[in-house]
Amino acid sequence: MKKLFCIIALITAFNLTGTLVMAYPDSEEAGGKRFTISGNIKDKLTGEELIGATIYIKEIKTGTTTNVYGFYSISLNPGKYTITYTYIGYTAVEKAIELKENLRLDIDLQTREQLLKEVVIKGERPDENIRKPEMSVVRMDIKTINRIPALMGEVDIIKAIQMLPGVQSTAEGSSGFSVRGGGPDQNLILLDEAIVYNASHLLGFFSVFNNDAIKDVTLYKGDIPASSGGRLSSLLDIRMKDGNHNLKQAYHRRACYKRPHFFPGCRQKNLC
């Protein structure tokens, strides 16, 4: 039990650091040096938080991306900036701002289909895959996954994953996969941060994941973020749609993903 307390103490310590950290940037800002632009990026129609959307500042040729909760934050010297918000499959948004104080900029992006007349804004910066110090990572959006021809028309994200380099299926039709030679149990599969122990359904011919409720799938074949651990070979991070996400309070989500075969069921959290 001693260890347990030790860990709890550590967590508390982190919280304290958190508070300290909080004080620090504020004081820096008070010094008038830098201001922060932060906010959430969402799909305009559905309110879905967009994971990995790009925020690019033209003037200083730098940028950032949203985290898994659609949040971004970037600190800059005061001045005039042009910010471009982009996301694959969505129409980019450009904002010209004058930074004099901390700014909260929540951006809603529209898919090309949602937009009536097409406005094309080209980013000048190279793509994320060149810029990020992150390798052996593949992100797939659900649109890509949905297009892959599937057995009996049943789209399956695990089958899509098996098409990526370095990923082998363990046997035909199986929901097990091997990443860079690791065993199928060496993959950490997270569905909205909850560990999934068995991704197979119907003797493994279909995976349990319901593609209609999935927003984003990222496979880390190596270079697993330090925030995740417990498995040797890979991290498969699956994020579900938030549904109506205007609530800022704590919310409870119960993912019913005991998937009914060829039939609708309980899928969205607001139905569960």
């Binding site: 009996m152 028309g153 209609d212 549904g243 039939f263 609708p264 969205q268 607001n270 139905l271």
Partner: peptide
């Protein structure tokens, strides 16, 4: 998308 029920008929 709030109510996204998909009916599949094979």
């Amino acid at each position: 998308n709030r109510i996204n029920i998909k009916i599949k008929a094979l």
